[in-house]
């Protein structure tokens, strides 16, 4: 479903090095990244801040082209087939929203229907399903700016799923949520993956997300994968009885 082959992404910055002289300065956000995700997998994508997670997500969703290597999502080259790809993937950014701030949540969903050209019947059925699973009923008619963060996240998640994408990419979806909201979101994601077989790639700093959801974990550091395996494999990299936080901290700091 997702194939990344020796992908790299560098950024060139120019900075002043004198009165007229400018220096080129190249930053490698991602270098030589290779992995693939099979249909139906639930993969956690971890890494310290600045490791290249967001750059990877941008390459997968087509808003950034790799400078080297190759990326395929749902059989498409993301940056070249952005429009076709948008119909097959759903993306949720925990720190941004795709919803219309001043309008009732329901209106944003109606726009999604037009944007992705979803059949009226399919739309009604899916919305009813999501409404039940995400418990949206009580705030569908409320303007998004008045929703709590937890409600807004559930709304964003529903908006990303109304066109029934086969891949869901989540960038820190649980950031800032309270324990109850987190638990509800996790239960929903688990069910989505198990029942519908939706492939999920999840970046997070909340290791509770990883422990409860991900069958597989990838860790990126300095633009390269430093770990790729099951949750059990991940635990096995550290002495027994280490907490998951300790295990990951060891990987981030290069220990172990």
């Amino acid at each position: 479903m997702i194939e990344v082959e020796r992908a790299g992404r560098s950024f060139t910055h120019r900075r002043k090095a004198g009165v007229l002289r400018r220096e080129r300065h190249v930053v490698h956000a991602v270098r030589d990244l290779t992995f693939s995700v099979a249909p139906g997998e639930f993969v956690g994508y971890l890494g310290p801040n600045g490791a290249g997670k967001s750059t990877t997500i941008k390459m997968l969703t087509g808003i950034l082209t790799p400078t080297t290597g190759r990326v395929r999502v749902a059989g498409l080259d993301p940056s070249r087939r952005r429009t076709a790809l948008a119909r097959r993937i759903g993306v949720v950014f925990g720190q941004r929203t795709t919803l219309w701030w001043d309008l009732p949540l329901r209106d944003s969903f109606e726009l999604v229907r037009h944007l992705y050209n979803v059949d009226q019947g399919d739309f009604r059925r899916r919305l009813a399903e999501l409404e039940e699973l995400l418990d949206l009923g009580s705030f569908l008619h409320i303007p998004v700016r008045q929703l709590s963060l937890g409600q807004r996240m559930r709304g964003d998640l529903a908006a990303a799923l109304l066109h029934a994408p086969s891949v869901l990419v989540l960038d820190e979806p649980t950031i800032g949520l309270d324990v109850v909201s987190k638990a509800a979101l996790r239960a929903f994601l688990r069910e989505l993956n198990a029942e519908r077989g939706t492939t999920v790639l999840l970046t997070t700093h909340d290791l509770g997300d990883v422990e409860r959801l991900c069958s597989r974990v990838m860790v990126i550091d300095h633009g390269r994968l430093s770990f790729d395996g099951t949750l059990g494999d991940l635990r096995a990299t550290a002495p027994e009885e280490s907490s998951i936080e300790d295990v990951v901290a060891r990987l981030y700091t290069g220990g172990g």
Binding site: D102, L103, D107, L111, H114, N117
Partner: peptide, 19 residues
Amino acid sequence: TVFQLYLRIALYGFRKHST
């Protein structure tokens, strides 16, 4: 369908400001 999409966006622009 494309026309309907942009028409709806215009309608939302109207309603957004009417708030």
